[in-house]
């Protein structure tokens, strides 16, 4: 059989719809995992041994169990306890929880890297702990963590392909349909591979420029 990409042309709109679903799921999961990551990082760096222990157990579990197992746990398990949500929502929740575990590790090291003198200055000026976390700890930790958080996000995008196993027709799911419709799996999956790789490359470029933008004030200006 010849390698022929033209047979894919009529299926491009369908694949784009899948790509859009992937983008939506990843965007929502990015927000979800950042929120969870911040919360869990706050708990892990808190002075309460119980909270920090609980946060550690969460991170340890979700980092060491395959995502597909986590996904099946939620997808098949939630209806068991009377929670009926669609595959998309389940996927976003599972991605957020797994991504949250990885993000929290990154954010935690960002927090631990903050100069204690800065926190002391905030403390003696009478700022409350929540304000210190929101106004000082969080922005500093997030800014220094842009690059490693970017890697977590790229992994999130790659992992989102697994959502196709719970009947969600995101990019990989749609490609599966096109592959079986056209009987040209090699072309379809080869293109898909390139698409994902280009997508993650573009994301890494965007992360690089975001990092430079957010850390502008670290560079001395000429004025």
């Amino acid at each position: 059989m010849k390698f022929d990409l033209t047979i894919l042309a009529p299926h491009v709109p369908f694949l784009l719809k899948g790509a859009l679903l992937t983008a939506e799921a990843c965007a929502l999961a990015l927000v979800g995992s950042l929120i969870i990551g911040l919360l869990v990082a706050a708990l892990r760096t808190s002075s309460s041994p119980i909270l920090s222990r609980a946060a550690f157990i969460y991170v340890d579990l979700f980092r060491n169990i395959p995502f597909i197992v986590q996904l099946f746990f939620f997808f098949y398990g939630l209806p068991e306890i009377g929670i009926y949500i669609d595959a998309f929502t389940t996927g976003v929740i599972a991605l957020s929880i797994a991504g949250g575990a990885f993000s929290s590790d990154v954010i935690r090291s960002g927090i631990l890297a903050i100069d204690t003198g800065i926190l002391e200055a905030a403390e003696v000026s009478g700022l409350s702990k929540p304000v210190i976390f929101r106004k000082i700890v969080m922005p500093i930790a997030l800014r220094t963590s842009v690059r490693p958080l970017g890697s977590v996000f790229i992994n999130l995008v790659l992992t989102s392909s697994i959502l196709s196993t719970i009947t969600l027709n995101e990019l990989t799911g749609s490609a599966k349909i096109v592959a079986s419709d056209t009987f040209r799996p090699f072309e379809v999956y080869a293109v898909l591979l390139i698409v994902y790789a280009s997508l993650t490359y573009l994301i890494s470029l965007a992360i690089g420029s975001l990092h430079r933008r957010l850390n502008r004030d670290r560079m001395p200006d000429v004025a």
């Binding site: 800065i118 905030a122 004030d217």
Partner: peptide, 26 residues
């Protein structure tokens, strides 16, 4: 109010933001 040896300014805030944070919040 304390002034520190190593300044301990908030690196992500401008001079004005450094100064106004506690007056506004506290």
């Amino acid at each position: 109010a304390t002034v520190f040896q190593l300044f301990n300014l908030y690196p992500h805030m401008t001079a004005v933001e450094n100064i106004t944070l506690a007056p506004i919040q506290v």
